[in-house]
Design a protein around this nucleic acid. Sequence first.
DNA 1: ATATTTGTTATATTTGTTATATAACAAATA
DNA 2: TATTTGTTATATAACAAATATAACAAATAT
Lengths: 132, 132
Amino acid sequence: MIIKIDMKSETALYEQLYNNVVWGIATGRLKQGEKMPTVRQLGIDLGINLHTVNKAYSLLKQKGYLSAHRNKGAVVNKKEFFIADKDFREDIKSSLKPLVCECYARGMSTDEMCSILKEIAENIKVEAEDKH
Amino acid sequence: MIIKIDMKSETALYEQLYNNVVWGIATGRLKQGEKMPTVRQLGIDLGINLHTVNKAYSLLKQKGYLSAHRNKGAVVNKKEFFIADKDFREDIKSSLKPLVCECYARGMSTDEMCSILKEIAENIKVEAEDKH
DNA sequence: ATATTTGTTATATTTGTTATATAACAAATA
DNA sequence: TATTTGTTATATAACAAATATAACAAATAT
């Protein structure tokens, strides 16, 4: 999978990298068991430091998306390793609440919010089909 | 409205403050034309620096929620000042996409995501009715 | 007019985070 | 035994968050 980062973005590099990998999994570009580039190689490819890559990988491991073994590189975990369990749902709720507050404060209805969410989800589905 | 911040939270103080005010507007605790505490007073009340308060207020002004005038303090704007226009919707989409990706990667359906969103919105409604 | 209140701007300092750089360690493989 | 890979440890620089002090500018009160 081609990973791209935007040096001008306000989002931290390691966070962009994290989001990219999650997007890759969501769109089926990264499949379970698939080998990730090494922290050194990806650092070279993206023109960033291996520790920045390592920080992203560590987070991805912590969240269950990747496993890493010495001299083996990082691989994408099976889906069972990153299910939408209770803890995850609580995390998502916490992240979502401020956004919902903003929408609500601006007079948006719940249906409107859901339709935006569905639009995004639909987009991800299209990106998943576009991978060929 | 009673504003509370958590010094142990990972979220920046100015951001917590920002979220608090938006929540206040969303739940009807802060009404249009209502006077906000002065940056100095709120700083004293919360035990934080007036510049931290000022940073939150500046962001809230920038997003249309508040107006400020010298020696008048900050007041909550009319709803017309913070509608859910195209720019806002684009911003929300950008913020929402990484979250939707995570949910999608973990096998959640769009309906499940919407139900979580609705749950949060329902909660805000309850908090709005609880204000008496 | 003058003093006060308030947002605003400016400068400096401390602390934590992000990103880079170099080096070394540890485990698996060739 | 050498190499590859993740991992850990320092050190450094740049930036952001939060504080501290001071001063400025406009509106209000006395």
